[in-house]
Amino acid sequence: MLIDSGSPRAMETIGISLTINGETRNLQVAPWTTLLDLLREGLDLTGTKKGCDHGQCGACTVLVDGKRINSCLALAVMKDGAEITTIEGLGQAGAMHPLQAAFVEHDAFQCGYCTPGQICSAAGMLAEGHAHSREEIREAMSGNICRCGAYTNIVDAIEDVMQSGAAR
């Protein structure tokens, strides 16, 4: 066994290493800490949102080793060694990722709470390369609920970036 935490409750935390937005960090985490809670509560990276905590909304979407996942359903300890990109790492005000800029330009959000998840999801979706038409974008982005109803603008923004080839 690589790790055996021993008897229940004997062990509080496990050491892991994560590269978050390009910075490698050695962290002590309890095994029941999700990646989402680690980011938000442990590292004050609150750009990643908790909308449902159960994989039902997509607000917590981050990129793990380049792939979009729901960080609320990932135990941090299981991501030992992974590379994590959150909305904060995608781009910053003043140096925005093309998707971030396109979301602003197309008014692809209102309250903004689902937005980081939408953008990370869109980045992951573009990297996957399976969606080409508006119809396919709609299906591929259906894992991110926007209660404000900005969907048509979200698709506009993503299509814009897709057509300009601006995304990495």
Binding site: L90, Q92, F103, F109
Partner: peptide, 9 residues
């Protein structure tokens, strides 16, 4: 408030 919302700030 767009830039703050799309960058997670």
């Amino acid at each position: 408030d767009g830039p703050a919302k799309v960058t997670g700030l």
